[in-house]
Simulated scan of single mutants.
Amino acid sequence: MSEPILTLTDVVVAFDALRAVDGVSLTVPRGQRRAIIGPNGAGKTTLFNAIAGAVPPTSGKILFDGHDVTRLPPHRRAQLGISRTFQITNLFPTLTVQDNMILALRGLSPRKFSLFGSSDTDATEAPRIAAALTAARIGERANVIVKEMSYGEQRQLEIAISLVTTPTMLLLDEPAAGLSPSERSMIAEVIRSLSRDITVVLIEHDMDLALGLVDYVTCMFEGRVLVEQPPEGIRRNSQVQEVYLGKPRHA
């Protein structure tokens, strides 16, 4: 097993008396595809928010790529290589795909502070944007206004935006939510084709999709890690069936 890129130790996120994340410890090896599953209210998105920096842990430690990021704000974690998508699309609908990509790329650059910056891409930005759009299978859609795209294409654009900053870890929060079967297949193809230089951690309620994409699964229940196993073990695990997939029926 390769060295870990992400290590959580006894992470707690509490909102008053509610422990949304209750002492979670886990390790994600570099290059792994990891799914975090569990029923609604299990703490999955809160855990994502703690990893990305959107909410501070009440206690515990988060290490990313050798750095203690427990108290770092989201933009510092992004600069270290953490990128994420959200359950709900988070785009500029009246701008083009290209403009959305430029804004994302410059969000981590000193150029964002320039009042006289150009909207044109420079020699380093253009190939990065083109590569990210190609990876997301929307390379030919650069000049399209975002609101004119299908919802599936907008989800692909979100993945492209998360890739353009060349992350080393990608957090995907329900990337196939609200998509048709054909759109889910396209998202699965995009994720499956990502370089193993990028570690992928995803939350996904479509179990067939999630288990078909990942190497390892963490199942959460009531804020805690219930079980961690490869996908085939998860399919057969009676605890997972009971709390998430539903109890198996008997003939």
Rank of each mutant, 00 (worst) to 15 (best):
S162E: 02
V164T: 13
T165M: 09
T165I: 14
T166H: 11
P167K: 00
P167I: 00
P167H: 00
P167W: 00
P167A: 00
L170N: 05
L171K: 01
L171Q: 00
L172C: 02
L172T: 03
D173K: 04
E174D: 13
E174W: 09
E174V: 14
P175W: 03
A176Y: 02
A177P: 08
A177G: 07
G178S: 10
L179T: 12
S180F: 00
S180K: 01
P181M: 00
P181N: 00
S182K: 11
E183H: 04
E183D: 06
E183I: 12
S185D: 08
S185W: 04
M186E: 07
M186I: 14
A188D: 08
A188Q: 09
E189M: 13
V190T: 14
V190R: 09
I191Y: 06
I191T: 13
I191G: 08
R192I: 10
R192E: 11
S193I: 03
S193K: 07
S193T: 05
S195I: 09
R196Y: 08
R196C: 08
I198D: 00
T199E: 03
V201W: 03
V201K: 05
L202P: 08
L202D: 05
L202R: 05
E204L: 10
E204N: 09
H205W: 00
H205G: 00
D208W: 06
L209S: 04
A210T: 12
G212L: 02
G212C: 02
L213I: 12
V214Y: 01
V214T: 06
D215A: 07
D215K: 09
Y216M: 04
V217M: 13
T218D: 11
T218L: 12
C219W: 04
F221L: 15
F221C: 14
G223Y: 10
R224M: 14
V225A: 01
V225G: 03
V225R: 02
L226Y: 08
L226D: 09
L226E: 11
V227C: 03
V227R: 05
V227M: 06
V227Q: 03
Q229N: 15
P230D: 15
P230N: 13
E232C: 13
E232Y: 10
R235F: 12
R235I: 15
R235G: 12
R236N: 12
R236K: 14
R236H: 15
